[in-house]
Amino acid sequence: MEKFTTLSAVAAALPEDNIDTDKIIPARFLKTTRRTGLGKHAFDSMRYRPDGSENPDFILNQEPWRHAEILVTYDNLGCGSSREHAPWALLDFGIRCVIAPSFADIFFNNCFKNGILPISLPRDVCELLMADSSMGSNARLTIDLPRQVVIRPGGEEVPFEIDPFRKHMLLEGLDDIGQTLQHESEIKSYEQKVVGERPWMPVITLD
């Protein structure tokens, strides 16, 4: 996983509540067996017209926002399905940071697993960042993860909260599995304890 430290980039505003994972990546594109290559289908129904051509009204089809690396939206971003294809599609498009007043739980988790930083900020702050983003490439937002601030184009700093463990994992680009496997002996002793306490627990075997 790519490390996340600081990011200075164009931000795109999608001023909507409840942008669901079907909207981020429709189910018909989930037939891949790979993690990459989904960027061209990100926001498919908003980005393309029925004949397959680009919809010029959609912000991610406009300069400079087609190079956006930050998305700013309203509440409950990523609601719906657990599909990790949603952050994969965002990442493949080039998005490294998503900012919203609130997120759906599974999507929020999935972002961290892919080096995307989700930042939760109050709605009125999101509105300010959306206004900044409308100024395009002259108005980059800077995300400073070590210091936990979003720096607006005028230099004003907006602090944000992040779980220390997740911050550490993002900063170092670490894989959760390797971390958990360091606790192998605790997992083993838990397993032995359960066999003793709940011996009736069945296993699944098929002939």
Binding site: S82, E84, I177
Partner: peptide, 13 residues
């Protein structure tokens, strides 16, 4: 429900 990275995490651990 979990994402695919967590699916892999459960498989391994």
């Amino acid at each position: 429900g979990i994402g695919t990275s967590e699916v892999e995490h459960v498989m391994a651990t």
